[in-house]
Simulated scan of single mutants.
Amino acid sequence: MPHMDVPGGRLYYETEGKSENPALLLIHAGIATLRMWDPLVTPLAEHHFVIRFDTRGFGETGSDDVEFSNCDDALRLLDELGVERATVIGSSRGGQIALDLAVEHADRVAGLVTIGSGPSGFPEVELSEAEDELFDTMDSTWEARDWPAHMDAEVRLWAVGPLRDPGDIDPDFLETARTLNRFNISKIDENPVPRALEPPAFDRVVDIDVPALVVVGEYDITPALMQFEYLAEQIPGADSMRLDDTAHLPSVERPGAFLTVLEPWLSRHDL
């Protein structure tokens, strides 16, 4: 199992495909690990060098309780693998990291794909009543330190979404979402502190000059939907897509549908 030493930690990563092919860097959501990309890696690796890693506080990466930069970790991994530029594909929190990379290290980013993501520094958005209730459940389970219940509450909010009934969701997808999130219980007592980008990406996305694809699930929460609209309008020339019948994890819930959009987009932009 490949690990790479970074200041105050050890990143777990995986690669697939030929290293001479165009590189894709996949950054997972905050309720998952690099395993969320499993259904996509093999088809993408036919024509790409696919790189994915567990960020600090998640999966099989280990970290001391230190301040660190998610961008620096990603760049160190690219350096380790001899990759000068990559198309960065990030889901949720991973998409925010991808946006930070695109505005702060434009020379290393060949293309950008965000899934249910917003830029760092995005203003707070008022939640719906249903969303407020789901967040309250997450808060109460966190305070009780009931980690399985807390992570199931996260899945209810993010993977199901406030407008859908769990009984209407594919049970295999729900089990996958629970498994992805519960793997991170072992990291609860790790407290690495991510250093915020200054200035944040919010006012800087207008300067992104690489191909960009902005994706959101139809039933995602209000802030994610508003962030999607903002990115689609503010990133010059950005393509955008709402994936039907999904919430915050569209690439996990409907990987085939996601690939039917992603692969032609990559080809069209020679990425």
Rank of each mutant, 00 (worst) to 15 (best):
R76S: 05
L77M: 03
F58W: 09
I169K: 13
M4S: 09
V261H: 08
P171R: 11
E190Y: 06
S140M: 08
G8D: 15
D132K: 01
E16R: 00
V261I: 14
T137V: 01
L225T: 04
T260I: 07
A201F: 14
D107Q: 11
L231C: 15
V109K: 04
D146L: 06
A110Q: 00
G161Q: 06
F228L: 06
L157I: 07
H48K: 15
S63Q: 01
T42S: 03
A110P: 11
L262A: 08
A23T: 04
F183C: 04
G57F: 13
L81M: 07
P119K: 13
T87P: 02
D172Y: 04
T176C: 10
G167E: 15
R242M: 14
S63M: 05
P200F: 06
A232G: 12
R268L: 13
E104S: 15
E80M: 01
F58Q: 02
I185G: 00
T55L: 07
F53M: 00
G95Q: 02
E218G: 01
A257I: 02
R52L: 14
R52I: 05
F49S: 04
V6Y: 12
H28T: 12
D72W: 13
S69R: 12
V261G: 02
R93T: 07
P7F: 02
L157K: 14
G121F: 00
F135R: 05
E133V: 11
E133K: 11
P166E: 12
R156K: 09
G256Q: 00
G94S: 07
G95K: 06
P43F: 12
L262R: 05
S140H: 12
K18I: 04
S267G: 10
W37R: 04
E218D: 11
D170C: 08
Y13L: 04
E198I: 00
R35C: 13
A257Q: 01
L259I: 12
E80L: 11
E198R: 13
L24H: 09
L243Q: 10
D65R: 06
P211Q: 05
A130T: 05
A23V: 11
A144P: 05
E124Y: 00
E263V: 11
A86R: 08
H48Q: 15
R108N: 15
L81D: 10
L81E: 11
I169C: 08
I221A: 13
V193N: 10
P2S: 09
D170G: 11
S19R: 06
L213P: 09
D100F: 01
D189V: 10
P43D: 09
G59E: 04
V160L: 01
A86K: 07
K18L: 13
V216H: 13
S140Q: 12
A212C: 14
A32C: 14
C71E: 15
V193T: 04
A74L: 06
T87Q: 00
L262M: 07
E124C: 08
K18G: 13
A32N: 07
M138I: 08
L243F: 01
V103F: 13
M241P: 09
R10M: 03
E143D: 03
D207R: 00
G237M: 14
D245S: 08
L34D: 06
R204D: 00
V193P: 05
V210G: 03
V41I: 05
P43N: 02
P119A: 14
D139F: 06
F53C: 02
D245T: 01
M36S: 03
I221T: 05
F173N: 05
R156G: 08
